[in-house]
Amino acid sequence: MAESEHSYHPGRREYIQIGVILTVLTAIEVGLFYADPPPAVAIPVLLALTALKFILVVFWFMHLRFDTPLFRRLFFTGGILATIIYGIVAATFYFGGA
């Protein structure tokens, strides 16, 4: 186990706590959906909740918080690059002059 010297992994207790938080967040998402608020309110809130869940899984379950920063950089390079370039593509479709 190469990692044991220099990386801390959370234990069962923390994993279960995260699992509970994820459950609650999902419940809020679904609840929000059925409350049927105007999309201008609902969409930012839904995206925020999604981002929160994303971060919990990535940083705790995938140990990015505890592992070497290189892994974080690799993952976020991919994620951010994808967001930027596909964002620009989508923007040219919505605001393009064609």
């Binding site: 190469a2 990692e3 220099h6 070497t68 290189l70 892994f71 690799l74 993952f75 390079t77 991919g78 994620g79 690059l81 994808a82 967001t83 370039i85 596909y86 593509v89 989508a90």
Partner: peptide
Amino acid sequence: SLGISNTKLAMWCFIGSECLFFGALIS
């Protein structure tokens, strides 16, 4: 060289690549 395992590094590279893959499908 970096004191981290090859397979884990490879897995993270692959996951970084998958971000672009699913990003394309989502967009």
